[in-house]
Design a binder for these strands. Structure first.
Lengths: 167, 167
DNA sequence: TGAGTATCGTCAAGTATCTTGACTATATGG
DNA sequence: CCATATAGTCAAGATACTTGACGATACTCA
């Protein structure tokens, strides 16, 4: 019994990528469970990520595309789903016949509110688990990493990023 | 121009879950790109995660299932793919007619070696980007989080985790 | 010994997320 | 007015999972 447990622990991967993936999945599972408990079963991980980018007062779909790291088609599909759930609605942009404005419905704003609450709860739980100091260090490192990566990507783009269509 | 950039930055979500997800995706993209460059195009993220759990000298599929956070069916599908690629092979377990042993092929071991190299390279890059101290703090926090979460799950299971099938 | 039960792996079907390619409609700038 | 770029959509497919059902083997204990 004990021997098996030992084996299990001893062999877990321990590189950054694995740890990040693990932590990310755990967070998402916790968030999804809490949101389901709050009656928002439609709140999947990708949708949550996208909603985090939509300004409370709405925005153009194209602006959303710029902000998110995924393709316009993927965003469209997510929005389709969210629209079907009644979380957001899409209106034609009066300024540009091609564009559309995405904005929250009443239901969407309520869900957003619950989402924020749940996020704060989870954060509190995390701080309780690993201590405020460690948590702060975690956020600090993650922010630094994101900033550094964004900078690295900008450099690539600025230098000569378009070697893709060779061959 | 500048104004648009400001907008873009100002609106990024900043909670733990989002940061973890971002960081995880960025790591995976970096890893996949490097592995592709090394001629291992089949090395997808889920496969990499699974391979991280397979002992160098092979192991039972059921042991793999215990270690991984995903379902046995998902693991089977991943193994199917890896087997088709010639990375691992599955042999009947002489000790147990139901079981199978999973082990690396020669090609798999080579890929694993490249994978380890790439992981170390990325880690070095990360340390270069955010500093050794921050990186250490990051790993420390992630490990603590994983340990605390595992403990929390064990508690749940020990107490009364089976309220699922009510209603 | 043999019936019930648990474990191991598989098959099948479905969902979520994301990708690429092709296309329409509108805007913009000579 | 025409060429080109941009905004959004449609369709098809890949990947990474999920749940449910199932067959085969092993274990237990009366």
């Amino acid at each position: 019994m004990v021997k098996e447990l030992d084996k299990k622990i001893e062999a877990l991967p321990d590189h950054v990528g694995w740890r990040l993936w693990q932590a990310s999945r755990a967070w998402q599972a916790e968030f999804a469970a809490a949101m389901r408990a709050a009656g928002h079963g439609w709140f999947t991980e990708a949708r949550a990520g996208l909603l985090g980018h939509i300004a409370r007062n709405g925005m153009r779909q194209s602006a959303l595309i710029e902000r998110s790291a995924i393709s316009k088609q993927a965003i469209q599909q997510l929005l389709d789903g969210l629209e079907a759930e009644g979380i957001v609605e899409r209106l034609p942009d009066p300024q540009d016949g091609r564009g559309k404005l995405v904005r929250y419905t009443r239901k969407g704003l309520d869900a957003l509110h619950d989402g924020d609450r749940v996020k704060m709860e989870i954060e509190r739980r995390y701080i309780g688990r690993i201590g405020k100091e460690r948590f702060t260090a975690l956020m600090d490192a993650l922010r630094a990493l994101a900033a550094a990566q964004a900078a690295a990507m900008d450099e690539d783009a600025g230098a000569e990023g378009e070697v893709v269509e060779s061959k």
